[in-house]
């Protein structure tokens, strides 16, 4: 399997008034056309890893890496124009909450069409048709109606489907999903996940699935990276999760209460400072 994405010693630093905060501290992995989960608590650097790959870290952040390459293109030395051309066209990202990540004053259809028009020379009618097809592909039943709706007029689940449509319409090869279901109702989560699952499989995309939910990730991905304090503490095949060696991973697994088992006392996540070294 040829590597779609190579990450070697990725670091993201934020200079602040009290000193430099290093959010990502030497993360390395390679990704083919497979599903990779990145798991960790909030603040573990998992989201910043995804954003660094997209080139969407805040302007004052410093991103360095020995190598950060997408399909042979060195991302860090690529000119901004090239990175913009890649974004949306070849690498796309799904954000957490459709309530905030869709533009509230633009209709859903226009936001999807906009992605297409940015990356392809395409007529209006053609773009509209492709957008409608994409809406149908994320299992929206009445695409023509939803096309003209504004984000506040749809439910969270439908909003996230629109988000997926907007990001996948130009046919990217790599998708970074940053907590794509965390803001949704539990019942809707599974629907959205199964849509995502099918699209990733059909189109043969590489997927980086960022989440705090270890079980969800393990059921959805081939491989899991466990991050703690900006570092990868364990890399493990999803099927092997039961044999996780790192105490932090075990801790994450044990945090889940099991129905029928004793619940007292609830296990507390153990955090040892030496893991962060």
């Amino acid at each position: 399997m040829s590597a779609l994405l190579t990450v070697e010693d990725l670091r993201v630093r934020f200079p602040t008034r009290t000193g430099v905060v290093e959010a990502v501290r030497g993360v390395s992995f390679t990704l083919g056309r497979e599903r990779l989960g990145i798991v960790g608590e909030s603040g573990s650097g998992k989201s910043q890893t995804g954003r660094a790959i997209m080139g969407l870290t805040p302007p004052h952040a410093e991103v360095t890496a020995k190598r950060l390459a997408f399909d042979g293109i060195d991302l860090l030395s690529a000119p901004p124009k090239l990175r913009r051309d890649l974004r949306g066209k070849r690498i796309a990202m799904i954000l957490q909450d459709p309530k905030y990540s869709l533009n509230p004053v633009m209709s859903i259809g226009r936001q999807i069409v906009e992605t297409l028009q940015r990356h392809e020379k395409i007529g209006r009618a053609e773009a509209r048709k492709r957008a409608l097809d994409m809406l149908a592909a994320v299992q929206i039943r009445d695409p023509a109606r939803v096309f003209d709706l504004y984000p506040h007029e749809v439910s969270g689940g439908m909003g996230q489907r629109a988000m997926i449509a907007m990001m996948l319409v130009a046919g990217p090869e790599l998708l970074i999903a940053d907590e794509p279901t965390s803001a949704l109702d539990v019942t809707v989560q599974l629907e959205v996940l199964s849509i995502l699952d099918r699209l990733v499989a059909e189109r043969g995309m590489g997927l980086i699935f960022v989440s705090h939910d270890l079980r969800l990730v393990s059921s959805f991905c081939d491989r899991v990276l466990v991050m703690y304090a900006g570092k990868i503490v364990e890399e493990i095949a999803a099927s092997e999760l039961g044999n996780a060696k790192h105490p932090y991973t075990q801790g994450l697994l044990n945090c889940m209460p099991v129905i029928g088992a004793g619940r007292h006392p609830l296990p507390v996540l153990d955090r040892k400072p030496e893991w962060a070294l």
């Binding site: 974004r87 949306g88 990001m167």
Partner: peptide, 26 residues
């Protein structure tokens, strides 16, 4: 500062389009 700006960037839009088309429109 809003998330939809990040999403617009993730779509590959130019800064000019993001500023005048998305942020200013809001």
């Amino acid at each position: 500062q809003q998330e939809y700006i990040v999403a617009a960037r993730a779509k590959g839009l130019s800064e000019a389009r993001i500023i005048w088309g998305h942020a200013l429109r809001n």
